[in-house]
Design a protein around this nucleic acid. Sequence first.
DNA 1: GTATATATTTGACATGGATCAAATCGGGCG
DNA 2: CGCCCGATTTGATCCATGTCAAATATATAC
Lengths: 250, 250
Amino acid sequence: MAQAIPFRLVSRLKAPCHHCSLSNLCLPLAIEENDLDRLEDIVEQGRIFNRGEQIFDQSMPFRACFAVKSGAIKTSIITETGEEQVTGFFMPGELVGLDSIGTEHYACTARALERTSVCEFPVDKLKELTSKLPELQHHMYHLMSQEIQNSHQLSMLLSKNTAEERIAALLLSLSSRFRRRRMSPTTFSLPMARNDIANFLGLAVETVSRVFTRFQNQGIIKARGREVELLDIKALQMGSRELSRQSHNR
Amino acid sequence: MAQAIPFRLVSRLKAPCHHCSLSNLCLPLAIEENDLDRLEDIVEQGRIFNRGEQIFDQSMPFRACFAVKSGAIKTSIITETGEEQVTGFFMPGELVGLDSIGTEHYACTARALERTSVCEFPVDKLKELTSKLPELQHHMYHLMSQEIQNSHQLSMLLSKNTAEERIAALLLSLSSRFRRRRMSPTTFSLPMARNDIANFLGLAVETVSRVFTRFQNQGIIKARGREVELLDIKALQMGSRELSRQSHNR
DNA sequence: GTATATATTTGACATGGATCAAATCGGGCG
DNA sequence: CGCCCGATTTGATCCATGTCAAATATATAC
């Protein structure tokens, strides 16, 4: 379900970034046509992970960033006491692993939420390339500062907003990210389980579930399992000023 | 009060990074002796701000990052509804403004918590320099990813921990940052008001106040106003696994 | 030094969301 | 096709923390 990109794209052979449907969202967008080959030279394309499979793990030495090609990924921190904290969801065109650049090991664990294909950018080569291509360097800084800002927005959401507002904000954030991919911003299927939503938003699963039904009763959304339809965007925006216009990787 | 660095350092004249007591904490730590002049060439030193003065503001075009030389800075986001969310506290040797690199405008507002002197690094020159000095580039990436991680830790603290645990974590974080500067990790004065602590940790002021007195009654800390003494570090660490070993800019 | 504003503390009370328990749904598999 | 297991929903209850109000302490100004 929710497989955005047709299957044939995912061979391990080099498929040029030129032809990727995400090239205007992903790293290539920062780069001139004629420098694009240099990015293509360093990228490893088309690795596939099944639902629940781990892309990398907190304990592994940091080697590469990953761009989501299709599917979706969640990142989380596991504490010494074994608790999980989901720190982010990543959709096609978005770059995973930025929080680990400059550390020896990955700073979090990344797991596929559904069947997911990724492109892999080895950091050493990526860093090398950024010193040669100022636009790419700028873009990397941009993505990283964006991620800091997103995380601050999340903190704000967690510390100031009610359960309803948090969930509304998440739905709107997903909506705008689907729109960027020219998919319906009102009807889509959630890549993650209620559990992940709860964890990410600092709520109990039961609360998430209750809010979903409350929204449904109020005619704000229609939800059946992971399939959702946003019926009243205005109502969602009301009181969820936070994540709403978040820029998510561009 | 709590002026870490003697006053004579703060002239506007170029005081070489070589001689700065923070050179092993701040940007210079990433750079070879003989490249240090190039950093000194671009830095503007010794601007002073009084308590409450604003270093930069969300609406201003982004121009520079600031290293704290003495004093302390808080950063916060102001929402459209005028609410404030404190996103961080910055102590001497730490770099403010990383969340704005790669955006047109500052992503937050920075304000001096006490009399504070800063060094200013214009971004354009900094970026130029980073493409020439790989170590500096690496260090910038490191600082930024560190900041993402810190922010994730904060999210975790906000979504999973009790008021007591959050405050314990903040005290321990400050403690470790004072230690880095070779100041007492157990007796120091808080640069920020209870209000800022509350806002940062997503609590009501009253709750912060109550937790402080509770800790005091339990013999875990001694606090009179902003002066605190940590009496039982173990007790503070108990249940505040989160921010405790945070790396804060290194 | 005294006065006024601001920050902090303390108390009483209300409540959103957590927790515990149990029912129902839904999908994968034999 | 029906069974089983995890995911989701629903209900009942409780508690940590927010909110409102007021007293006290501390800082700033005059």
